[in-house]
Amino acid sequence: MSVDAIIETEGLTKRYGKVTAIDGLSIRVEKGAVYGFVGPNGAGKTTTMRILATLTRPTAGKAWVGGYSVTEEPRQVRRLIGYMPDFFGIYGDMTVREYLEFFAACYEIPESRRHGLIDDLLELVDLTHRQNDMVDKLSRGLKQRLCLARTLAHDPEVLILDEPASGLDPRARIEIRELLVELARMGKTIFFSSHILSDVEEICTHLGIIEAGKLVAQGDVASMRAIWKPERDITLVVLDGPDNAKAILSDLEGVSEVEEMPCPEGRHCLRVIFSGDDEAVSEMVRRLVEGGVRVIGVSEAERTLETVFMRATKGLVT
């Protein structure tokens, strides 16, 4: 296992009968990273997380958390992780405080420390005012926050969160996202899966894309964007007819596509898919101006993870 990796898997494979859920997966998560694990439904995200959470035994391969093998030393791994599954039940006949007290006891937190710890957890997830309410009276978003507080009861180094924002309304989703940002700021390593790529994009430092049980891409977000979406998406606004500009742009090196887009009256907007650095963009604008095109605006669309995801995956499912 690598020295600075807190989660690492090597050739991790899980088969259910004839179905291979994950196939030779090798991932690496550095300490302090926020690792977004994305992939289509049935790609193997939950299986991977369950193996890391010591709930499922792999058919082959190895996995370590904090240097401990998930199959050989599950108790040490459980000490290090806080796991939140995608679907979880709650003990509806308990109050919010009793629920956290119960799990604090399960994590062997001494009784003398529990009261203060639970106060802190309730404050972190903003449930102090609901501490005496029965758990089954909470909304789904609040239950999700309570479950997140539960995973933090023993102050774990690593959080393994399977779709932490799934099924939540926009407000609850944003609140969970903000909580994750806060936890990352506290130095936790977060390994989480999500379908909501904008959330992943906003908070993760690293990204792993899984499809049909295989890891198709992995790395820090910036390099993933550069690798999987090298072209730049540039919009030019010109005053003259677009034909001259189109002709000039088509002759330029690195331009793969030019198309006219809707634009306010009197102006023409051109979308240029272009490979090149900032110097090349500047050169493109100069050539247009020299060719008599009156350029009044240049903007570039951000390279989103959505594009990276769509390019990295092929739409396969296991």
Binding site: A53, T54, G89, C147, H154
Partner: peptide, 16 residues
């Protein structure tokens, strides 16, 4: 019953 109500796995990942 813990399995059916999906609380069993939460327990199994604790130190209990």
């Amino acid at each position: 019953g813990e399995r059916e109500s999906q609380t069993f796995e939460l327990l199994r990942t604790t130190l209990l």
